[in-house]
Computed example of a mutant assay.
Amino acid sequence: MKMRESELPGIGKKIEIFTRSADKITIILHEDGTRELYHFHENDDEECVSNVRFDDEARQISAILGGMAYKPKALESVEAALDKLMIEWFKIESGSLADQETIGALGIGEHYHVTVIAVVKKDRGKILNSGSETVISEGDTLVISGERNELTRLMKEKLTASERDV
């Protein structure tokens, strides 16, 4: 794979990717956080066949492409060694019970057996090794680790919008 990166003044960056199979993909990284993906015709790397614009979903798509949402068979032995341990990135939703609460008050470790690895504040500040006194807010992203069923229960019960607000 070959890559070429260039600045787009006032816009962001352009990354051109040429795959082993000679496909050309161009990704535009806008300064406002949006992303554009362009796929070019196999016989003419100047003729765009399709394009897609992404906002927040770019991170989720990159996780899928990077193999975080799909587990190839080759990784089964790694999962067995970790015994169902998962790491998730979860953005605190507006109206969730977690908004303006501390990690300790939510019982994340005590009741859900989940560890908060880091908190990425909505202003992009980071809190590593956050303690029970760390306050989390709507729009913050938690990096959490635990077993899949406990992570799912925590996200459903505390981190997503409660039914009273829906």
Score class of each variant (00 low, 15 high):
residue 25 I to Q: 04
residue 25 I to A: 03
residue 26 T to L: 05
residue 27 I to D: 00
residue 27 I to Y: 04
residue 28 I to W: 04
residue 29 L to D: 01
residue 29 L to Q: 01
residue 29 L to C: 05
residue 29 L to M: 07
residue 30 H to K: 02
residue 31 E to P: 00
residue 31 E to D: 03
residue 33 G to H: 00
residue 34 T to Q: 02
residue 35 R to A: 00
residue 35 R to I: 07
residue 36 E to K: 07
residue 36 E to S: 07
residue 36 E to Y: 03
residue 36 E to V: 05
residue 38 Y to D: 08
residue 38 Y to F: 12
residue 38 Y to M: 08
residue 38 Y to G: 02
residue 38 Y to S: 05
residue 39 H to I: 12
residue 39 H to T: 13
residue 39 H to W: 12
residue 39 H to F: 13
residue 39 H to Q: 10
residue 40 F to P: 09
residue 40 F to N: 08
residue 40 F to H: 11
residue 41 H to M: 12
residue 41 H to S: 12
residue 41 H to I: 07
residue 41 H to K: 13
residue 42 E to C: 11
residue 44 D to F: 08
residue 44 D to K: 01
residue 45 D to G: 04
residue 45 D to L: 10
residue 45 D to N: 10
residue 46 E to Q: 14
residue 46 E to P: 06
residue 47 E to P: 04
residue 47 E to L: 14
residue 47 E to A: 13
residue 48 C to R: 14
residue 48 C to S: 06
residue 48 C to Q: 10
residue 49 V to H: 05
residue 49 V to M: 13
residue 49 V to I: 12
residue 49 V to D: 08
residue 50 S to E: 07
residue 51 N to E: 10
residue 51 N to T: 05
residue 52 V to K: 06
residue 53 R to P: 00
residue 53 R to A: 04
residue 54 F to T: 02
residue 55 D to A: 09
residue 55 D to I: 05
residue 55 D to Y: 09
residue 56 D to P: 02
residue 56 D to T: 06
residue 56 D to S: 06
residue 56 D to M: 11
residue 57 E to Q: 10
residue 58 A to K: 00
residue 59 R to G: 10
residue 60 Q to K: 05
residue 61 I to G: 02
residue 61 I to D: 02
residue 62 S to Q: 04
residue 62 S to K: 03
residue 62 S to V: 03
residue 62 S to A: 10
residue 63 A to E: 07
residue 64 I to S: 02
residue 65 L to E: 03
residue 65 L to D: 00
residue 66 G to W: 01
residue 67 G to M: 00
residue 67 G to A: 00
residue 68 M to S: 12
residue 68 M to F: 07
residue 68 M to D: 07
residue 69 A to L: 04
residue 69 A to V: 02
residue 69 A to G: 04
residue 69 A to Y: 01
residue 70 Y to R: 10
residue 70 Y to P: 00
residue 70 Y to V: 08
residue 70 Y to F: 02
residue 71 K to F: 11
residue 71 K to G: 09
residue 72 P to D: 06
residue 72 P to T: 08
residue 73 K to S: 15
residue 75 L to H: 14
residue 75 L to K: 15
residue 76 E to N: 15
residue 77 S to V: 15
residue 77 S to F: 12
residue 77 S to A: 15
residue 78 V to T: 14
residue 78 V to C: 11
residue 79 E to A: 14
residue 79 E to M: 12
residue 79 E to Q: 14
residue 81 A to R: 14
residue 81 A to L: 13
residue 81 A to P: 07
residue 82 L to Y: 12
residue 82 L to Q: 13
residue 83 D to M: 08
residue 83 D to C: 06
residue 85 L to G: 09
residue 85 L to A: 09
residue 86 M to K: 09
residue 86 M to H: 12
residue 86 M to S: 06
residue 87 I to T: 08
residue 87 I to V: 11
residue 87 I to N: 05
residue 87 I to P: 04
residue 88 E to R: 15
residue 89 W to E: 14
residue 89 W to I: 07
residue 89 W to P: 02
residue 91 K to W: 04
residue 93 E to T: 07
residue 93 E to W: 06
residue 93 E to V: 04
